[in-house]
Design a protein around this nucleic acid. Structure first.
Lengths: 181, 181
DNA sequence: ATAACCATGTAAATGGTTACATGATTAG
DNA sequence: CTAATCATGTAACCATTTACATGGTTAT
């Protein structure tokens, strides 16, 4: 799913500027299922506008660039719906932290410790971010995806808390098995 | 983490051909944390060889292209370890299925149903694949990452089984809240 | 004072996917 | 007989990231 399609999707929820769309991908309900940056969003909006899938209203501002509010057109909605009829691609995950855990025997203890705490932190923050999404008045779909995210990030946090020893125990200790509930 | 680095990592586990490295990223313990294809692996191995980070031994075969077994050099190990000293990037996930759930109100019921069952299946298969990784004689690091993967994919499967109604219930039913253990 | 936030945009570089090209062997 | 597996590789294409460019406002 490319950035153009993702922007169309966000705009079905209401008008927004590029900046606001970026925020959606940092703190909004889709933040955990896609990450995109300014360098991809601004050109995407431009090309969507060129193709008539979104309209643009410029709001004059002083001291900063004019704000451009985009709204999706009926043609844009049509294209977005059409995209959704496809069979979705498989999930793609890229986790450098987990690769580092896998190769933990090559890491200095202090560094491994930093990577571990950093990853715990990343996942704890994800839990907090989802909890902070306003839970009133949200659609059941959004409840579903929020709940899924919360479940996954909580599972990671708990697993890490309970299985730290697999990465940090000295050699020669008893057999170890991962604990899972 | 680029494909070159990932290939070096795999080769620290033992010599392998490009084809075998690909299999590692389909069925091996890293399969859930990175996905890469032939079109990226073969050029990567070629360039690693050119840079002296891996050696290549060609094994003659009849009826199919000669097999090229790569082995990591001491320089390659040095470079790989150096890479691991960096601060890992944040996880990047891309899930078209979850985006489709989020926009479920735009989908025909039959299609939503297909996407839902497909995603359940994808995650159930992931659980099976991890369970099928030979659990004897594996390092604690690998136990850790396998266990983490198992925990996450199990959590997704159970969440989906228990919260199907959030996506499929008719409008006008009682208030619904996601169930999480 | 300092950091974070607001606000947009371009160009170059990176890096990976997809499609193509080839074709025997083995398992069900 | 059909599908999957084995086995490598290139080239064109696609999409995104990163770095650069600019700079006032607001909260701590």
């Amino acid at each position: 799913m490319d950035v153009r399609t993702l922007c169309l999707g966000i705009l079905t929820l209401g008008d927004a500027s590029g900046y606001e769309i970026k925020k959606q991908f940092e703190e909004g309900p889709l933040a955990f299922f896609y990450q995109i940056g300014f360098g991809a969003i601004y050109p995407a909006l431009k090309s969507l506008n060129r193709d008539g899938l979104v309209n643009c209203t410029e709001i004059m501002q002083h001291g900063r660039p004019n704000k451009k509010i985009y709204s999706i057109t009926s043609e844009g909605i049509k294209i977005f719906k059409k995209y959704l009829m496809r069979t979705p691609a498989c999930d793609k995950l890229r986790s450098e932290s987990i690769v580092m855990f896998f190769f933990a025997h090559f890491l200095a203890k202090e560094h491994l410790d930093g990577v571990f705490e950093g990853y715990l932190d990343e996942n704890r923050k994800a839990v907090e971010t989802i909890k902070n999404i306003n839970q009133n008045n949200i659609s059941p779909e959004c409840q579903f995806t929020n709940g899924l995210g919360l479940t996954v990030y909580n599972a990671i946090v708990h697993y890490m808390e309970n299985n730290r020893r697999l990465l940090f125990d000295e050699k020669g200790s008893d057999q170890r098995e991962p604990e899972m509930k």
